[in-house]
Amino acid sequence: MSKLTAEQIASEMDVFEKLYPIPRHTSRCGNGYAVSEFNAWDGFEYCKMWDGWKARAEIALPVLEQQEKAAGKHQEGE
């Protein structure tokens, strides 16, 4: 199960798609991608790339949350 919220996943997907355009016979499906042709190897690789991207985002999540908290405390102290 993902630690990311639906909004965070959608945002990550938008960034991912800007860097890596969706290949032929592949489409967004829920929190991932679906391949509509059996031999659409680019689509299958794309799904694996997305899994890696999402894992990276989940690993980075605690660091980002700490940075946001620190930024909030810094702004309150000003």
Results as ranks from 00 to 15, higher is better:
M1W: 09
S2H: 05
K3N: 15
T5G: 02
T5H: 01
T5I: 02
T5S: 09
A6N: 04
A6T: 02
E7W: 02
I9G: 08
A10E: 03
A10H: 01
D14G: 00
V15S: 00
V15C: 00
V15L: 05
F16W: 12
F16E: 06
E17W: 06
E17F: 04
K18I: 07
L19G: 13
L19H: 10
Y20G: 01
Y20V: 07
I22E: 06
I22L: 03
I22H: 07
I22V: 14
P23C: 09
P23W: 09
R24N: 04
R24L: 08
R24A: 06
H25Y: 15
H25L: 15
T26Q: 03
S27Y: 04
R28C: 01
C29F: 09
G30Y: 14
N31L: 11
A34L: 06
A34E: 04
S36Q: 11
E37L: 13
F38C: 07
N39R: 12
A40R: 05
A40D: 08
A40V: 04
W41R: 00
D42N: 13
G43D: 00
G43A: 08
F44A: 00
Y46T: 01
Y46Q: 00
M49T: 05
M49E: 03
D51E: 13
W53A: 13
W53Y: 15
K54C: 12
A55L: 07
A55V: 03
R56I: 01
R56L: 03
R56G: 03
A57T: 10
E58A: 07
E58F: 07
I59P: 06
I59D: 05
A60I: 08
L61A: 15
V63C: 05
V63H: 08
L64M: 12
L64I: 10
E65F: 12
Q66V: 08
Q66Y: 04
Q66M: 10
Q67V: 06
Q67P: 02
E68A: 13
A70M: 13
A70S: 12
A71F: 09
G72Q: 10
H74Y: 06
H74V: 02
Q75C: 00
Q75W: 05
E76K: 15
E76F: 14
G77Q: 10
E78I: 11
